[in-house]
Amino acid sequence: MIKLENVSKSYVKGKKSVDTLNLEIKDGEIFGFLGPNGAGKTTTIKMITGILNSDEGKILVDDKDIKTDSISAKKTIGFVPDTPDIFLKLKGIEYLNFMGDIYEVPKEIRKQRIEELTKKFEIYDNLNEEMQGYSHGMRQKIILCGALLSNPKNWILDEPMTGLDPKASYDLKEMMRKHAKEGNCVFFSTHVLEVAEKLCDRVGIINKGKLIFVGTFDEMKSKLKDNGTLEELFLEITQDE
């Protein structure tokens, strides 16, 4: 469960990049976070994962406050950032073992889990290579494997589909579905409306830091017909593709 109460953040004084955001993502739910470039999606995600401090408001992950109880909150999160260019000097396997150490995944389970995940994403054979030599999509995949290694309850993914080939993208979507079905929580940002439509139980649209819509995709569609601003926004989003 992820809960945001009146969360605000400004990088520059007087310009709120995220403006009094209220949002609750329940267990068992896939939530899609939509919005044009610069809307505040990444900023919101960075606050949920504890990379940035919010200026105002409260963020709870599984009822644990990310500011005051950050370690236990972070333990429940599997996070995939928007740039996968992390620790490139490490070999794939070294990176995964590092994540295993940090999230305290027992050695016996770890080995099996690594094999399972990397085989699924077809990077098992590249585990002994430095990540410097990985393609964008391969880096994306190894980060994904690292994030899912400890089997965290709450998945938070910032544009996870970019760079993945259709098969990996399909696999990831299936995994997201399965994870949510098992009573966990999936929160991801995307520009692709089609993905949101097919995958999400609910979507949220953010523009210029303000959340302007939350609901199911169908609700959004019907609302689009009589709401001008949403239509404009829809245009902006679809134009990105």
């Binding site: 994962t49 504890g50 990379i51 950050s70 370690i71 236990s72 972070k74 333990k75 999160i77 996070f79 950032p81 992390i86 620790f87 940090i102 999230y103």
Partner: peptide, 12 residues
Amino acid sequence: KDLEFVLPLPLK
């Protein structure tokens, strides 16, 4: 630039 990747980890 590693802090951004280290901060979301459950580390004190």
